[in-house]
Nucleic acid binder design. Structure first.
Lengths: 124, 124
DNA sequence: CGTTAAAGTTCCAAAATATTGAACTACGGA
DNA sequence: TCCGTAGTTCAATATTTTGGAACTTTAACG
């Protein structure tokens, strides 16, 4: 568990960094899951909830990238590392950005769900 | 200049694809430059205007990724390939997304400009 | 027509990144 | 103190990106 966790301040958060962090489907899913639970989640829980399966080392890497981009902040609680989305900082630095990405995500999810339904009714 | 250009339709445009395409600083700069010129630009012009220097093969690759993500459409005009941002399709598929990304880009550019100015006045 | 030039594309090797198993560190019980 | 749990780091492997060279296509010029 080693080194102290580095959290960039508002000025150090870059658009390129955020887009890079969000551009990975796994990380986008993690962010979304973190937003759903305002208490924060650890790596293991997130993996479980998103239904993604990945080794701990990969999860750890993704969290590091999310943290270093400024998207999330993490805090040690005993043996685990609990993370939350830095909504306030993000809203301040790039108002509307995270919202619109998540809105797009939801929009896409809804469309996918509709397609599943219509396929099922066509088949049945 | 070989194969016919493939342009995904609205339904085939995915958030992951768009974020991936936008997450590269070079591609983000290209998109921004394309938006500034509503007539469309070719690879060579874009490289010149953005001030980026890259070989043709790299430029071609970036354009292909932008095209396949649905961000831009390209049309052959003689020997060159002219591209435009598919603003309408994007607004339809993911309303507000591109806008907020570009707004964030401008915001960041302005902040960087301010920093340059204040550094210069501190030094002078 | 041939030739030449311009603009991109394709190919492929090298460079850069990402993934992941294994070893390791930290913490909290029993 | 010894175990088990949660994460991190390391190093090897796998994947992706970059860019030079060769190639294709179109146009312009004799």
């Amino acid at each position: 568990m080693s080194r102290p966790l580095a959290h960039p301040d508002a000025a150090a958060v870059t658009l390129a960094g955020l887009l890079f962090a969000l551009a990975d489907p796994v990380r986008l899913a993690i962010v979304r899951e973190l937003l759903k639970s305002q208490a924060g989640l650890n790596c293991t829980e997130t993996t479980a909830r998103t239904g993604l399966s990945m080794p701990k080392s990969t999860c750890s890497q993704h969290y590091r990238i999310l943290r270093e981009s400024g998207l999330i902040e993490s805090e040690r609680r005993g043996t685990e590392l609990v993370s939350r989305v830095r909504t306030q900082l993000l809203a301040e630095r790039f108002p509307g950005l995270l919202d619109s990405v998540l809105q797009a995500f939801e929009r896409e999810s809804r469309a996918a769900a509709r397609r599943r339904v219509s396929r099922a009714s066509a088949a049945g």
